[in-house]
Design a protein around this nucleic acid. Structure first.
Lengths: 238, 238
DNA sequence: CAGGTTAGGATTGTGCATAATGCAGAGGTA
DNA sequence: TACCTCTGCATTATGCACAATCCTAACCTG
């Protein structure tokens, strides 16, 4: 059986069918997205039965997703009492991003000189297209988002350290939730300046990688992540 | 119902009765203990049915415990295939240590100037005692081990970033497994040179922290972790 | 009004049904 | 013969409905 759940929410997931063996991951991602979008507010009690009805899956995947999110630190799990959403403050985003910066800069350093030039040039061209694009439609956002993921994934996969790549992958769950939530907000505000800014930062990383400059590449990545923090944390409680 | 599980294993848990709502936690702790005792070797497949029979618990708490341990990073959970204990080869030690270095250096930078001087001086004195000690008895090893943990924990807890501290804590489980294993081997080999070497490195970190030099402290920490790699990876499968 | 009691809802745990995976061996092809 | 593909079976993970347990809070009762 394969079943569709949730008509709304993150664009990357919308309209997808979720099959056997992927329920837990999907529920976790949907919950994360809801939390960062503010649909699930801090302190709110997460009732398993409600969630299972809403997502059209049974309670087991829900509970496993909750256990997983507890490990991420975004919800608290009180024995025999259930799960409550923890407050996500700007300081949390900052903290997560510090860790992200440490890991992704290390990965960037190591990936330098290990990625095929053809691929890098292709990415650079794509970012330039994004920069010069005028329309800020839904598909534009999706495209930008996909490129963002592609660059970061490429670096992680090319760093020659599978463990590091795996750790970045673990955190990706959080990053993506931050990113998607803030991009939704930004789009609603018609605040599109950040898109070209972000494309600039990405381009700087790619060009440094093409040039083969370790120091420059890691510095560009560091700037990129630093710049992201203030946008991601906008609209969150202090 | 309350039921006793597992006659053997960790002293703190032996003979305890495990009640409703505590199964997952207990299973997770028992599994962790078994992994570090070497009863469960790296790469080994963890079969849910076997575990549920062995622990006299049904499959749900087992699976939740596995999800939890996956979050800790000590096992891999492949969808539709199950859980395996993470393989640790020499290359992995190197990889894990790269990640560790990135995180702990960041923590050291941030902890600089945030730790009470009194505590630092006390630690420095302890490391000097270790350096000058002649006897390499079991209690000596325990003492050195405890000091090692104390320094690293102190830095993580003082870095002002709870998320970073949590990530380091996660990796600590892995580090500790490396460290204990390699120290056992070293003790057996009567190769005690590393102990004073390590005390030197620790001392350098502490003194840099006392001096309040961010750069010097993080560099000392970097050297310390780098130096550890070749000792930790000795005697592991390639 | 205090203290015990009970009913309702929620979590937790169990056993079973189902789906996915991997392996072994048959059969085909070069 | 060596190699690849495919099929069927055994094993295992996954998901679900039900039962047991726990927590809360309203409700008696003296």
């Amino acid at each position: 059986m394969s079943r569709t759940l949730q008509p709304r929410l993150p664009a990357t997931l919308r309209g997808t069918t979720f099959d056997h063996g992927q329920r837990r991951r999907m529920v976790a991602e949907l919950l994360l997205a809801e939390i960062f979008q503010g649909a699930l507010q801090a302190g709110q009690h997460l009732v398993i039965k409600d969630l299972s009805e809403r997502f059209q899956v049974s309670s087991t995947p829900i509970r496993e997703a909750l256990v997983q999110l507890e490990g991420v630190g975004i919800i608290d799990f009180v024995p025999n009492s259930g799960a409550v959403v923890r407050q996500v403050k700007t300081s949390d985003v900052k903290e997560v991003c510090q860790v992200r910066r440490a890991l992704e800069c290390e990965a960037t350093r190591r990936a330098c000189g290990r990625i095929a030039l053809a691929e890098l040039h292709e990415l650079a061209a794509a970012f330039r297209r994004i920069k010069s694009a005028k329309r800020r439609s839904r598909s534009f956002v999706d495209k930008a988002r996909e490129l963002d993921s592609r660059l970061h994934d490429l670096i992680a996969d090319s760093c020659g350290n599978r463990f590091l790549a795996k750790e970045i992958g673990r955190l990706k769950l959080l990053f993506r939730a931050f990113r998607d939530a803030s991009w939704e907000r930004r789009l609603a505000d018609n605040d599109c300046y950040r898109f070209t800014e972000e494309a600039d930062e990405h381009l700087a990383v790619v060009e440094a990688l093409i040039a083969g400059s370790v120091k420059q590449a890691s510095r560009a990545m560091s700037c990129h992540i630093r710049a992201g923090v203030k946008y991601w944390s906008r609209g969150l409680p202090t």
